[in-house]
Nucleic acid binder design. Structure first.
Length: 558
RNA sequence: UGGGGUGUCGCCAAGUGGCUAAGGCAACGGGUUUUGAUCCCGUCAUUCGGAGGUUCGAGUCCUCCCACCCCAGCCA
C-alpha cells in the first residue's frame, strides 16, 4: 500500500474508514452488464476495484448486473469472466448475478408498497415523460400516485404473473415529483418485460430497474465501497434512499470517478457493437478493437494494461488520455520481455558472391539483448539472403546520417552476422531493382571490421533458403480523428480505411516456425508482433503487429 | 433557464493555506548502442479558468463571473 505514490481520493476514504472502524474489511465489486465485451475503459474499473481490495486486504466480487433480459446473453457472461481472469484478477467466491436476488427485490418492492412508498402507475411511457416535467420545470404527480396500497399490491402481482401487457404498468417509488434531481421524481422500480432471462428463464415477467437493484445488490453482498462512474453521481441520492428505506443487511457507500477516455478510439459498448454488427471490424476481438479480447489478440499483455491503468489517476475529472500513454506501457512491457527475431516484411534478394553455394553457417544470436535468461537462437547464414526493400538504396549521394542502411558501393552490418558491401544490382525490364550483388567482409561476425570499413548501420536479414514464410498484419489506429463522432458527426465517418494492411510473403527467421502461440516477439527494427490466434496455421504463421517500435527518425520526415 | 460535477504545462495529473508548483506521457537537445529501439543525462508552468477580496503568506479560504461534462430510458 505504501509505495510512495500519492493516494487517490478513494484510497484516502477507505483508509480513513478503516482507521475509524467504519468498516472492518473492504469489499468492492466489478458489476458489468453482460450485454457486450469488456474494453479498455472497463479495465480501469477492474484494476481499480480489484486493486483496492488487494491493497487493503479486502475482497472484490464479480457481479453481473443482469436486470435487463432484452440485451443480455450468456456469451457475454463467459467472455467477461475470461477477460477478468486474463487480466490477472480472481474474484471473491462465486460469480454473483443480480438475478440471484430477484426474489428479495420483489419482497422489498412489496414492502415499499405496504409502507406507502411505492405504487403501481398506469401512465404510458409518453405520459410518464410528460408528467416528469423538464430540467427547469417540476413534474406533476401521477393520478395513480395515491391509489390504495391493496390495489398496488394486487397489480404488482398481476404484473409479475404476466397478466399485464408490456408498457401498461410500472412500479414507481413515491419520492418527490418536484425534486430538482430528476432521478427522484418517482423513479421506476419495476417494468414489465415478458421475455425470458438468460438465467431465470421465464420465471419473471417483470424486471427491476438499475436504480432499484444496484444498491441492494451491494448491500446483500456486503460491499462497503461501491465505485462507479461520474454519470451516476445524480443517482447517489436515490441509491441512498433505497438503502435507508429498506431493511438491507449493509450500508454500502457509492463513490464516483471519471471514466477512461482514450483518443483515436471509442469506448462505448453501443459503438463497439455497431462496429462489429456492421462489419467494420472482424468481430469483438478484432485486433484493432479496444476490447480486452481485441487487445489480447493483438498482443497487448495484461501487465501492460494493468500498468497503464495504474498510471491513470482516479479522480473526478473527465478527461481524455493520449493513446501515446497507453502505447508507452505496451512497449515498456514488451521491450522488457519479448523475444527478438528477424522478419523481412518486403523481401529483396541479396546474393553474396563470396559465400559458397549450398553452404550454411549457423550463427547464434541472443533472444534478448540484455536478458541472458531468455537464451539464444540459431540463424542459418547462406549465400542468398533477403533484406527489406526499404533498407537498400542505389543513391550513393545519400548521407550516412540520413540513411543508415545499405547503399550501393557501401557497407552495412547484418544484424548478428557479417558486414557486407553492395557491389552491384540487377534490374528487371521495368527498371525495378530485383536483386543486389554483394560480398561479405570475412571475420566480421561479432568482430569490428578492419580499419577503413565503416558500416552505415545495422539492418535485419533472413536466409533466402532457410526461413519461414509468414503473413504479417500491420495495424494503424481505427479512427482518423482524435474524437470520433465529435461535433455531432457520425463516428463511422472517421473510420480509418487503412487500419489493416496485410503483408504476405514475409520471410521470418527459422525459429518462428515453432512459434509458441503465446510468445510475444520483437521483430528487430520493425516492432512487436504476436501470433494470431485465429488465422495462424502450423506451417504458415500469421503475426499481428502489436505496435511498432518508437521511431524518432521517421518523425523527422527524412 | 433547474440539479449534479469539473477546471493546475500539448495530454494525464500531485498538491488537503507556509521550504524554489511532484510525477508520468509527449516534445526537444546530448551520450551509449551490432535494433534510427532500449538505456542514460538534460530542457520543458515566476504560474494554477478569469476578476476581485481575506491573510504576514492562497493553486489551496471567500465573492462574483466564465468554460466544459452529466441528467428529462419503462438502459446501465
Amino acid at each position: 500500500m505504501d509505495d510512495g505514490k500519492p493516494q487517490n481520493f478513494i484510497q484516502q476514504i477507505i483508509r480513513q474508514d478503516l482507521e475509524e472502524g467504519v468498516v472492518s474489511r473492504v469489499v468492492t465489486r466489478f458489476p458489468p452488464e453482460p450485454n457486450g465485451y469488456l474494453h479498455i475503459g472497463h479495465a480501469k474499473s477492474i484494476c481499480l476495484n480489484f486493486g483496492l481490495a488487494e491493497q487493503f486486504d479486502g475482497v472484490c466480487n464479480l457481479r453481473f448486473d443482469d436486470t435487463n433480459p432484452e440485451r443480455e446473453e450468456d456469451e457475454y457472461v463467459r467472455a467477461i469472466q475470461q477477460d477478468v481472469r486474463w487480466l490477472g484478477y480472481q474474484w471473491h467466491g462465486e460469480v454473483r448475478f443480480a438475478s440471484d436476488y430477484f426474489d428479495q427485490f420483489y419482497a422489498w418492492a412489496v414492502l415499499l408498497i405496504e409502507q406507502g412508498k411505492a405504487y403501481v402507475c398506469e401512465l404510458s411511457a409518453e405520459q410518464t415523460r410528460e408528467y416528469r416535467g423538464t430540467l427547469t420545470e417540476p413534474g406533476r404527480n401521477s393520478p395513480y400516485r395515491d391509489r390504495p396500497v391493496e390495489e398496488s399490491l394486487v397489480l404488482l402481482e398481476k404484473m409479475r404473473d404476466g397478466e399485464i401487457e408490456e408498457g401498461k404498468m410500472v412500479l414507481r417509488a413515491k419520492i418527490d415529483m418536484a425534486s430538482p434531481n430528476i432521478n427522484l421524481r418517482d423513479p421506476v422500480l419495476y417494468r414489465i418485460k415478458r421475455r425470458p432471462h438468460h438465467r431465470t428463464g421465464d420465471k419473471w415477467n417483470i424486471y427491476p430497474s438499475y436504480d432499484f437493484s444496484h444498491g441492494q445488490e451491494d448491500a446483500i453482498e456486503g460491499v462497503t465501497h461501491s465505485i462507479c462512474t461520474l454519470e451516476f453521481e445524480d443517482h447517489r441520492p436515490l441509491y441512498e434512499w433505497f438503502i435507508e428505506n429498506l431493511p438491507v443487511p449493509g450500508k454500502p457507500r457509492q463513490y464516483e470517478f471519471g471514466r477512461l477516455n482514450l483518443n483515436y478510439t471509442v469506448t462505448s459498448k453501443r459503438k463497439l457493437k455497431q462496429l462489429v454488427d456492421e462489419r467494420h471490424v472482424d468481430g469483438w476481438d478484432d485486433p484493432r478493437m479496444p476490447t480486452i479480447s481485441g487487445l489480447r489478440r493483438r498482443g497487448v499483455t495484461p501487465a501492460a494494461i494493468r500498468n497503464f491503468c495504474d498510471s491513470l489517476a482516479v479522480a473526478k475529472t473527465d478527461g481524455t488520455v493520449d493513446m501515446a500513454q497507453f502505447e508507452h506501457f505496451i512497449r515498456d512491457d514488451l521491450n522488457a520481455n519479448a523475444h527478438r527475431a528477424m522478419c523481412v516484411l518486403d523481401p529483396l534478394k541479396v546474393v553474396l558472391s563470396n559465400v559458397a553455394e549450398g553452404e550454411t553457417e549457423m550463427l547464434t544470436a541472443p533472444a534478448h539483448p540484455n536478458r541472458d535468461d531468455l537464451g539464444t537462437r540459431q540463424l542459418p547464414f547462406t549465400r542468398e539472403i533477403y533484406i527489406d526493400r526499404a533498407d537498400f538504396s542505389d543513391d550513393t549521394a545519400l548521407s550516412r546520417k540520413k540513411f543508415k542502411r545499405l547503399v550501393l558501393g557501401d557497407y552495412v552490418r547484418l544484424r548478428a552476422a557479417y558486414v557486407i558491401r553492395a557491389d552491384d544490382l540487377v534490374r528487371d525490364g521495368e527498371g525495378n531493382i530485383v536483386e543486389i550483388q554483394a560480398s561479405i567482409v570475412p571475420g566480421t561476425v561479432g568482430e569490428d571490421p578492419p580499419e577503413g570499413i565503416k558500416p552505415r548501420g545495422v539492418i535485419h536479414w533472413v536466409s533466402a533458403t532457410e526461413n519461414v514464410e509468414c503473413e504479417v498484419r500491420l495495424y494503424d489506429r481505427l479512427f482518423l480523428e482524435p474524437s470520433p463522432g465529435a461535433g455531432g458527426r457520425n463516428f463511422l465517418d472517421s473510420v480509418n480505411p487503412d487500419s489493416l494492411v496485410i503483408k504476405t510473403g514475409c520471410k521470418g527467421e527459422i525459429g518462428l516456425a515453432e512459434t509458441e502461440r503465446d510468445r510475444h516477439y520483437q521483430f528487430e527494427r520493425e516492432g512487436y508482433f504476436y501470433p494470431d490466434s485465429r488465422y495462424s496455421d502450423a506451417g504458415r504463421p500469421v503475426f499481428n503487429q502489436t505496435i511498432g517500435l518508437k521511431d524518432n527518425w521517421a518523425k523527422g520526415g527524412n
